[in-house]
């Protein structure tokens, strides 16, 4: 993702009334009503077995209903720090959703609502389907009605390494000998764990560290989303906390030209062990829901809108394993 490229030029203010110009009515375009209508069977599955996750009235993400009694998977980073999560399945709204467990490596949260008789998603036997195959995902909801958006599988399944490597999210003082924290990054694992300016890091995963190089060597093979044990000194007292590692590139985000033309994209979009890629024209909120094949079976869960042209989903094989693990 770091590679340089010739930016596609962004053009604004296209002239509309030029001779010889023909334009296709919007309902006939890929996301248009008339085209989307043919995906009614898959939309019906989304209506029953996907969830809309809201903070008040604001749509945050979608979810995958995985049990009749109200267990739902969603994208963890999109709902982090929301105290009152409301969940809509079909037409029923549940205001008391609880986060039961999260998997930081995959950025998946397991929610529980007090419900009965839900229709859980049906898993496809494999996510190994050829490029160019139709897939369907959640689009913006209109009222109580789910919307389906079509796309195709568009690249090879693969790992998406953490952009820039994994980091605690602290800036260390450069001039002191000890590993003293100068600054804690917003939305970082270090901030969540309560690390503060002035704390001195003395151990990572039980190993003594006193130099930046030692710490860098210990951090080198860590994955974004995993956690490390950080032992630190504050006012003479030592304490140990679990710190979630974030992708460095997302902590110190600088918008590239491609980001500028992508509209909104997921804040966590790298550091996934394996994804399948598709081209559904969604937005940041359209993650967390199921990715369906034309049979209406779940081939994965949408986990990131990476940019204007690329969206990622967790493959069904890994999704089943994550669900089983979080349900324990």
């Amino acid at each position: 993702m770091n590679a340089k490229f010739f930016p596609i030029l962004l053009v604004l203010g296209l002239s509309q009334s030029v001779q010889g110009v023909q334009s296709l009515e919007s309902e006939l375009r890929k996301n248009g009503e008339t085209v989307v209508a043919v995906f009614e069977e898959q939309r019906a599955v989304l209506q029953k077995s996907s969830a809309v996750i809201r903070d008040g009235r604001k749509e945050l993400a979608y979810g995958v209903v995985i049990s009749a009694d109200g267990y739902i998977l969603t994208k963890a980073s999109e709902i982090a720090k929301i105290s009152a999560i409301s969940v809509t399945v079909d037409e029923a709204k549940f205001d008391n959703a609880k986060v039961v467990a999260t998997d930081a490596a995959w950025d998946v949260a397991l929610l529980k609502i007090e419900a009965q008789g839900l229709q859980p998603i049906q898993y496809a036997s494999s996510s190994d389907i050829p490029q160019g195959t139709w897939v369907v995902a959640n689009g913006a909801t209109s009222g109580s009605r789910r919307r389906a958006l079509p796309g195709i599988i568009s690249a090879k399944p693969r790992e998406i390494p953490a952009h820039g490597g994994a980091a605690l999210g602290v800036v260390l003082k450069s001039k002191t000998k000890a590993l003293e924290i100068e600054e804690v990054n917003e939305k970082s694992g270090a901030q969540e764990a309560g690390l503060q300016k002035g704390d001195v890091i003395v151990m990572i995963d039980g190993k003594n560290v006193s130099k930046i190089e030692e710490m860098a060597a210990l951090m080198k093979d860590k994955k974004a989303g995993s956690t490390v044990k950080v032992t630190y000194k504050r006012a003479g007292k030592e304490d140990t906390v679990d710190v979630r590692l974030a992708a460095k590139g997302e902590l110190f985000a600088q918008k590239s030209r491609n980001d500028q033309m992508s509209g909104d994209y997921s804040s966590r979009r790298t550091g996934f062990p394996r994804v399948i890629q598709h081209d559904v024209l969604g937005n940041k909120e359209s993650t967390g829901g199921p990715l369906l094949n034309l049979e209406g079976l779940c081939i994965g869960m949408n986990i990131a809108r990476a940019d204007r042209a690329q969206s990622f989903a967790i493959p069904v094989e890994e999704l089943k394993e994550i669900a089983a693990r979080l349900m324990k």
Binding site: A3, F5, F6, P7, I8, V18, G20, V21, Q22, S23, L24, L28, R29, K30, N31, V35, Q131, G132, G151, I152, S154, A155, K156, R158, E159, S256, R257, N258, M261, S262, Q277, D279, L281, D307, R308, A309, Q310
Partner: peptide, 30 residues
């Protein structure tokens, strides 16, 4: 590991020296 990326769409606008589709493009696709 990824290969080139395929996107599906329709021709949504045509003019003499430009055609437009809803296959999303981004830098590097040029």
């Amino acid at each position: 590991d990824r290969g080139s990326v395929v996107r599906l769409g329709r021709l949504v606008r045509t003019a003499d020296s430009t055609i437009q589709s809803d296959c999303t493009l981004i830098g590097g696709d040029s």
